[in-house]
Each structure stands twice: as C-alpha cells, then as structure tokens.
C-alpha cells in the first residue's frame, strides 16, 4: 500500500473514528444505558450527565496517559535497571547514575547545557525586547517583526544548514563562502578558521542558532505585553521628565515583568530539549555535547538504555521546577 494512500486512509479512519466514537458513545449513553424517557427520566438524565464528561475526555486522557505520563514512570524504572537479554531487566539501584556521573562526556554535556540555559534565554529575551520596542515605534514595524519572527517556522535542521553555511571554511587560497570567515579575513585575519571546532567558542556559535530562532517568539509575546502597558503611565512619566530610556527601563519593563518571566521559562524548556541543532552541526564533537544529544547517543548508538534513561531523568529533573511553578499558577488561576 502506498504511504500516501495509507495517510488518506488514516485521516479517514482517525477522523471518522473520533467522530464516530463521540457520536455513538453519546447515543449509547442517552438511548440505551440511561434513556431520558419513562419513570426514571429525571434520574437517568442526571446520571448520564455525570458520565458524559468522561466520554468526551476518554480518548485524550488515554493518549496522554500512554504517551506522556506512563513514559515518565517507565523511564524512571529503566534508569534504575539493567537490560538483560531476552527483553528482561534487572533492578540495579543507582548503578546507571553512578556510571553516568563517572563519564566526562556527561559532565561536559551538563556544563554545556547550563551554559545554554544561561545564554539562550537571556539573549533571546533581550533581543526580543529590543525588537519589540523598536518595531512598535516605526511604521514598517509589522514587516520588520515578520522577518525577525520568520526563523520560528524553520526547522532546527534547516537552521543548522543555514548556519553551517554562515560558519563555512574554505582553504586560504580560495574565496571564502562563509560570511564569518569572509568578514574575519576582511578585517585582517590571516588564516580562515574552522569555527565549529574552536573550543569553547563553538558552543556559543551553536547557541546563536537557537537565539536566532527564539528571538522572534520572545518579540511577539513581549510586543503584545508592551502594548498592554497603560498609555497613561508612559505619558505621566514623560511629563515627569523621563527620557525615552528611562521610560523604557523604569516604566515599561517593570510592568511587563511577568511576561518576561513567562518568555524566559518557555525558552528554557526549549533549550533543555534542544537536540537537532547539535546533532546536525557537530553531533556533540569538539566539546559541544548537550544532554538531549548525549541521551540520544546512549539510547540509540550505544544501546545503553540504563544510562540513556538516567540522563533523560536528569532532563526531567531540570524541567521539574518550571513544571511545579506552572501547575501552581494554573491552579491559582482556576480559583
């Protein structure tokens, strides 16, 4: 069967199945189990309405449970056990973690990840704030925003190719086609440099790719927040004699503090999961390893599920504070 045909069939089966499920399960509930007729009509309707939400929720909850909740626990279990031949496993306590902690590559990945966590959210938010503020003040701001936002649509792999071209290196006797080397030579560099092997600069060069992608996101959110700042507070500040920089840093930024935190944490989550960029540009060589790629290496190259799962748990651990904070806020908002 041709995959395209299979895809059409899947859409039909998936969509039809969903609609059918919801329709028929509701019919079953209202017609067969608790008919809204006869002497018990009232009671039956009440009962049907107690069950109905769960009919609506069931497919989503099943998928969420299976694809997100269960794996968290299963990964925890795998990280505490060792794979034996024949699909068996054995509990080994913290052996995998110990092994992982003894590997320099893990510490390299962790250190790099921490650097990413510092640099990428900070730079993306800063550039995003700058772009938002600048573009709100000119008439062609929307077009400018559009272009700065555009990298959001580009895959990490595509971005990796784009930036590899930027960092490309040719021998000294040829014309440079990577702009970084061209500029470097133009300003008096005597030798083209293979940038992606320069430790520790290469890690930062990879981070730039993600900053380039995430700035647009930060800009869009912050721009909306900036527009939400009450005009009166700004006008009051201007009348009080504040210059544009003071207005920006003393009046606007404090008022959108919460949004900045939101942007920051959202980008933090992206950073913790970053995999494709490193995978495509250096594959963790030259000391650019990060946790997600380290984990992929362990799981699918070394086939070491124990250590792979242990490193996945480390990522989970790093995400948890944000998770807790988000859940806490969501609960507060629901009340």
């Amino acid at each position: 069967m041709h995959p395209a045909f299979q895809a059409v069939l899947t859409i039909a089966v998936g969509v039809g199945g969903c609609v059918g499920y919801f329709y028929f399960s509701n019919q079953l509930l209202d017609r067969v189990l608790f008919p809204d007729k006869g002497i018990h009509a009232g009671r039956n309707i009440t009962r049907a309405n107690i069950i109905r939400p769960w009919l609506f929720l069931f497919p989503a909850l099943a998928a969420l449970g299976l694809y997100l909740a269960y794996p968290v626990f299963e990964t925890l279990r795998l990280s505490l056990s060792e794979r034996l031949p024949g699909n068996k496993s054995q509990y080994v306590g913290f052996d995998n973690y110990q092994q992982m902690f003894s590997e320099p590559k893990f510490w390299e990945a962790l250190t790099n990840n921490m650097l990413w966590l510092l640099v990428v959210p900070a730079l993306s938010t800063a550039f995003g704030l700058l772009a938002a503020q600048l573009s709100d003040r000119v008439r062609w701001g929307n077009i400018a925003k559009s272009f700065i936002f555009m990298p959001m649509a580009i895959s990490f792999v595509g971005a990796a190719v784009i930036w590899k071209l930027v960092y490309d290196t040719r021998p000294i006797d040829q014309e440079q086609i990577g702009v970084v080397n061209a500029v470097y030579l133009f300003f008096g560099g005597d030798q083209p440099i293979t940038w992606l092997t320069q430790i520790p600069a290469n890690s930062f060069l990879l981070m730039i790719v993600l900053v380039w992608i995430q700035t647009g996101f930060a800009m869009v959110i912050l721009s909306a927040a900036l527009r939400g700042v009450p005009e009166e507070t700004i006008e009051a500040a201007i009348i009080d004699g504040a210059n544009p920089f003071q207005v920006f840093f003393k009046i606007k930024v404090p008022q959108i503090k919460n949004t900045i935190v939101v942007v920051w944490t959202t980008i933090t989550i992206v950073v913790l999961k970053v995999f494709d960029i490193v995978f495509a540009m250096t594959n963790g060589q030259w000391e650019t390893q990060v946790l997600a790629n380290y984990m992929y290496d362990k799981l699918f190259r070394a086939q070491d599920w124990g250590v792979g799962s242990a490193s996945a748990m480390i990522i989970m651990l790093l995400v948890s504070p944000i998770l807790v904070w988000n859940v806490y806020n969501a609960r507060k908002e629901m009340q």
Partner: peptide, 10 residues
C-alpha cells in the same frame, strides 16, 4: 409535573 431533574430543553 416535577421538573427538578428535567433538562432545559424538555
């Protein structure tokens, strides 16, 4: 007719 449990439509 007692309406307490009757849905609005009915």
């Amino acid at each position: 007719v007692r309406m307490n449990e009757m849905p609005p439509a009915k």
